[in-house]
Computed example of a mutant assay.
Amino acid sequence: MENQTEYQLSELSFERSFDEKTAIEWMQANWTHSIGFSALYAVLVFGGQHFMRERPKLNLRRPLILWSLTLAVFSIVGAVRTGWYMLNFLSSSGFRRSICDQGFYYAPVPKFWAFAFVLSKAPELGDTVFIILRKQRLIFLHWYHHITVMLYSWYSYKDMVAGGGWFMTMNFCVHAIMYTYYTARASGVRVPRPLAMLITGAQISQMVMGVTVTALVYRWMQHGDCPSYPENVVWASLMYFSYLVLFARFFYRTYLKRGGPPPVKAAKRD
């Protein structure tokens, strides 16, 4: 089934030369480092806020533009490469196989982006540094989302669990829009309120699809052709359902409830 998809996609040189077996073996041996990164991140979140309490906020406009632009470009390219792969796979093999097949982790095009995706969750923690140093409002959703995504991504990649192609592609697509928005805002561009609402709406849709894919993985793994583990399904379910509740609550309080926080300021915390 993978061959039907692979021949339709031309490989870039770095995608072709990427050794996914070494990457998977490395993650199997080192995925617990994500726990250490999360602990350090938690210290940064609370210690950094305490450190900045009596200090003036920093502007950091140019570094923020560069940071957001870098992540935007990375996410856009990742969304195009993985999205095109998934579309081809859907058309050639169907919805069920697009969820259950492990080819996303080792097929010529997406194998690089799968590993790049999970690794990117560590540097993405840097988003919070700008919030703390600029003394902006840091909400629970922001740091909870960063920690749990990194932990689950590293934990799941090592086992090449079913659903990974959908999870990663959806995240790439949403982040492509989100970091482009952040870049525009940091550059001083006035972005219409409906666009900010659209981004949060896309995030909510991502969580709905995440819950759906996880439920289908659980259903089909009983038939033996959807490789995953009960504990992984449990963690994925808890993660995506909690995101769904938190993002829906954020959307309501920011855009629908009167007297909510300013949409632009709040939207930059996702």
Rank of each mutant, 00 (worst) to 15 (best):
F89V: 11
V73S: 03
R53K: 14
Y105R: 09
Y106T: 12
F89S: 11
Y105D: 09
F74V: 04
V80E: 08
L66V: 04
L44D: 01
Q49H: 00
R55I: 05
F95Y: 10
V45G: 06
S68V: 01
Y106K: 11
G48S: 06
L87Y: 14
Y41D: 00
T82L: 12
R53S: 08
G48M: 05
S93V: 13
L90K: 03
P108M: 12
I99T: 10
P108E: 12
R81P: 08
V43W: 07
R55E: 10
I99G: 08
Y106Q: 14
K111T: 07
I99L: 14
M52D: 04
P108C: 11
S92D: 14
E54D: 13
L87K: 14
F74P: 02
R53D: 07
V80C: 11
W84R: 15
V45P: 00
A42S: 09
P56W: 09
L66P: 02
L87E: 11
A79N: 04
G47Q: 00
F74C: 00
I76R: 01
L64G: 03
L40W: 09
V109L: 13
S93A: 15
L64P: 05
S98R: 14
F46W: 02
L40V: 06
A79G: 01
S98P: 14
G94H: 12
L64M: 10
G47D: 02
E54M: 06
K111E: 11
K57H: 12
S91E: 11
L90M: 10
I76Q: 02
I65D: 06
Y41T: 02
V80K: 09
P56S: 12
L60A: 02
R97Q: 14
G48D: 01
L40K: 09
L60N: 02
L69P: 06
S75M: 04
L58Q: 08
L44T: 03
L64S: 07
W67C: 04
W84G: 04
